Lab assay of single mutants.
Amino acid sequence: MPGGGPEMDDYMETLKDEEDALWENVECNRHMLSRYINPAKLTPYLRQCKVIDEQDEDEVLNAPMLPSKINRAGRLLDILHTKGQRGYVVFLESLEFYYPELYKLVTGKEPTRRFSTIVVEEGHEGLTHFLMNEVIKLQQQMKAKDLQRCELLARLRQLEDEKKQMTLTRVELLTFQERYYKMKEERDSYNDELVKVKDDNYNLAMRYAQLSEEKNMAVMRSRDLQLEIDQLKHRLNKMEEECKLERNQSLKLKNDIENRPKKEQVLELERENEMLKTKNQELQSIIQAGKRSLPDSDKAILDILEHDRKEALEDRQELVNRIYNLQEEARQAEELRDKYLEEKEDLELKCSTLGKDCEMYKHRMNTVMLQLEEVERERDQAFHSRDEAQTQYSQCLIEKDKYRKQIRELEEKNDEMRIEMVRREACIVNLESKLRRLSKDSNNLDQSLPRNLPVTIISQDFGDASPRTNGQEADDSSTSEESPEDSKYFLPYHPPQRRMNLKGIQLQRAKS
């Protein structure tokens, strides 16, 4: 015994090295194993092979420090690593049964499904019991997946119906949107047309105001020219009257000059006056001389005659003075006559000038009245044309509004008919989907599995289990394997941990 101590140590070291070499393959693929292994699927088989106990299973599945599946799978690998070579062998058998691809990844061999460990530990009855539990578990999982698949199909059909409904609603909204954009385009076109009409109206108003201003300026210029013409006519008439007055005065002077006595007659009258003065002096001298030589009687007679002569001279002087006064009065009367005649001529000139001015103003008033009548006639014609244009424009607008209203009513009726057609199509689609759903539900009910399987069917299934373990590994792997896509769409199922009653199965096998 003492001599065998070193050999035992060498043997233990060799086993430990082999164990480390075995687990080295697992550690190399630890990331892939932790990512894809579900500990809840492996722990029943590991407990059946007595590699882990209930406490280890509870620690792996329910520990609060292991929230994710990767953490739980890593903890399970750590626990199996502590179990040595047996933990490695049982772990590979569980991978061979549940995850053939991972088994091939770790060992590089094809899975054979021999279950040597569980046969050694529990015997064939334990293997049968384990396989029966796994089959029931798989059936329950398949039923749950079928239910989930039916629910998802129903949800899918519902979503398809909602999608069709949303599509129809979208078509309806597109119809309304198209109608909205069309009405918006019509409104924009009408606004552009309105702005264009306003611009045209403004341009016409500006043109009309400009023409009116030009016409008023032309009328004012015409009036100024007419006033200048009238003033020139007035000056012409005044000059004609002055010329006529000057002509009359010149004719009067000419007549006075023609009626003036001649120079010879004046000289002859002056000679006669001198001769008479000479004779008068001679007679006076004779009379003076006679007075001195005459007697007293003759002197008395001469005195009487002288007195008579003096009286006659006085009378004559009075007559001469009277004649002079009369001549002066006649001259003054002639001057007054000439003055009055001049005033008369001036008044006649003024009267004729005023008459011509009156005629001029009368003509001017007639011209202004004619212009006013023409302006009123043009204004009435413009008003009439404007009223006709406004009436025609309003009539066109009324007809346009009428046609637009008819078009809008027809478009609304068309839209309502399209919407009604879309709604009826939606109703038809809904009815078809309901009919299809009812038909599929009836087919699913016919094809669904019963909840409680008979014992004979279970025994028959387990009677055929042994050949399947040898020759149909691919079928078992397809039913027991969970793909990543299934984990996305289906909830994980945790079967209840219970042991099955095998009395009925044993009785059935005894009868057979």
Rank of each mutant, 00 (worst) to 15 (best):
G4V: 11
G4R: 13
G5T: 09
P6I: 12
P6Q: 14
E7C: 10
E7V: 12
M8I: 13
M8N: 11
D9T: 11
D9G: 12
D9I: 09
D9Q: 15
Y11E: 12
M12C: 07
M12F: 14
M12Y: 10
E13Q: 07
E13W: 13
E13D: 12
E13A: 10
T14G: 07
L15P: 09
L15E: 08
D17L: 08
D17K: 10
E18H: 07
E18D: 07
E19K: 12
D20R: 06
D20K: 09
A21M: 13
L22F: 09
E24F: 07
N25T: 06
V26F: 00
V26G: 01
V26E: 07
V26W: 00
E27W: 00
C28M: 01
C28R: 08
N29Y: 03
N29S: 07
N29C: 01
N29Q: 08
R30F: 01
R30A: 07
R30S: 00
H31V: 14
H31Q: 07
H31Y: 03
M32H: 10
M32D: 14
M32R: 10
M32G: 06
M32I: 03
L33F: 05
L33Q: 03
L33D: 00
S34A: 13
S34R: 04
S34D: 01
S34Q: 04
S34I: 04
S34M: 01
I37G: 01
N38Q: 09
N38W: 03
N38H: 06
N38E: 01
N38D: 01
N38C: 01
N38Y: 06
P39G: 01
A40R: 01
A40P: 06
A40D: 07
K41P: 02
L42W: 00
P44M: 09
Y45H: 10
Y45E: 10
L46S: 09
R47A: 08
R47L: 07
R47P: 07
Q48T: 10
Q48K: 08
C49D: 05
K50L: 10
K50Q: 11
K50N: 14
K50Y: 12
V51R: 06
V51Y: 07
V51T: 09
I52N: 08
I52G: 09
I52H: 06
D53S: 09
D53E: 08
D53G: 09
D53Y: 07
E54R: 12
Q55H: 10
Q55K: 08
D56Q: 07
D56G: 05
E57W: 02
E57N: 02
E57T: 04
D58L: 07
E59P: 01
E59T: 05
V60G: 00
L61A: 00
N62Y: 15
N62Q: 06
N62F: 12
N62L: 06
A63T: 05
A63E: 01
P64F: 14
P64L: 05
L66S: 01
L66F: 08
P67F: 05
S68R: 02
S68V: 05
S68T: 12
K69H: 04
K69T: 05
K69V: 05
K69Q: 05
I70M: 14
I70R: 07
I70L: 06
N71L: 08
N71A: 14
N71F: 04
R72W: 03
R72T: 05
A73I: 03
R75F: 00
R75C: 04
R75A: 06
L76T: 03
L76N: 01
L77E: 01
D78C: 05
D78F: 04
D78K: 00
I79Y: 04
I79N: 03
I79E: 00
I79W: 07
L80W: 04
H81Y: 09
T82L: 09
T82E: 03
K83A: 10
K83N: 06
K83S: 08
K83Y: 05
G84K: 08
Q85V: 04
Q85S: 12
Q85L: 07
Q85R: 12
R86L: 05
R86K: 10
G87R: 01
G87K: 06
G87W: 00
Y88L: 05
Y88T: 04
V90A: 11
F91C: 01
F91S: 01
L92W: 07
E93S: 02
E93C: 00
L95M: 14
E96R: 01
E96V: 06
Y98R: 04
P100Y: 00
E101R: 00
L102S: 00
L102M: 01
Y103T: 00
K104M: 10
V106E: 00
V106S: 00
T107C: 00
G108M: 14
G108P: 00
G108L: 00
K109E: 00
E110A: 04
P111L: 03
P111M: 00
T112P: 10
R113A: 04
F115C: 03
S116Q: 02
T117G: 08
I118G: 00
I118V: 15
V119R: 14
V120E: 07
E121S: 05
E121V: 08
E121P: 11
E121I: 07
E121R: 11
E121D: 14
E122I: 06
E122S: 10
G123E: 15
H124D: 14
H124S: 15
H124T: 13
H124I: 08
H124F: 08
E125C: 11
E125N: 07
G126I: 14
T128I: 15
H129K: 08
H129R: 01
L131F: 06
L131K: 15
L131V: 09
L131D: 08
L131G: 01
M132Q: 01
N133M: 14
E134F: 07
E134W: 15
E134L: 11
V135L: 06
K137P: 08
K137R: 11
L138E: 01
L138A: 06
L138S: 14
L138Q: 14
Q139P: 04
Q139G: 14
Q139L: 12
Q140C: 10
Q140Y: 15
Q140V: 10
Q141C: 03
Q141Y: 14
Q141F: 10
M142V: 08
M142E: 05
K143P: 06
A144Q: 09
K145Y: 11
K145F: 12
D146W: 06
